[in-house]
């Protein structure tokens, strides 16, 4: 079967790959491009562990075909930090111990970044509903939500120390 040639921008770098039609963007990221930070927890869009930002929108990469990535710009967990500097969301997840096993963490961080890009001052309820598509079985979400709210405050320039 002929593979399709796809050209996309991934984490700011132009990227080219070949993929079969049935391969999802998640399959492509993990198995073709070699970016394994996005995780497969369900392959049905129910867990959010594969969350990426595609042309400014948060999506489950398991629900996007690799071929649909043509011409798009994609941010994965690997593109959230700037060089060696962690994004405030990443830093706050660390400081608040908002992860235990860490498997859902990439998806949660990508989803949180997308939230704060769109709504810099979410309420706790807004944050909880925004992240409802990111399952975490370890934390009970308490510390995750605290990290999100603290990261939002820091990005607004409201935190001290």
């Amino acid at each position: 079967m002929a593979k399709s040639y796809v050209s996309a921008t991934i984490n700011g770098e132009s990227s080219e790959f070949l993929c079969e039609t049935q391969q999802t963007l998640l399959d492509v990221l993990r198995d073709v491009v070699g970016l394994t930070g996005s995780k497969e927890g369900c392959a049905s869009g129910d867990c959010g562990a594969c969350s990426v930002i595609m042309d400014g929108r948060l999506v489950c990469s398991c629900l996007v075909l690799g071929v649909e990535a043509e011409g798009t710009s994609i941010t994965t967990i690997e593109g959230i930090a700037t060089g060696e500097k962690l994004h405030p969301v990443q830093q706050k997840f660390l400081e608040h111990a908002a992860l235990q096993c860490g498997f859902c963490t990439p998806g949660l961080i990508v989803a949180t970044k997308a939230l704060l890009d769109e709504n810099p001052n979410p309420t706790e309820t807004e944050a909880r509903y925004w992240l409802a598509g990111n399952l975490c079985r370890c934390t009970g979400y308490d510390k995750v939500i605290r990290a999100v709210m603290d990261a939002a405050a820091e990005l607004r320039g409201e935190t001290v120390g």
Binding site: G37, I77, E78, L86, Q90, L99, T105
Partner: peptide, 8 residues
């Protein structure tokens, strides 16, 4: 192991 887990 925190940084590894928040960066993928």
């Amino acid at each position: 192991d925190g940084v590894d887990k928040v960066t993928g």
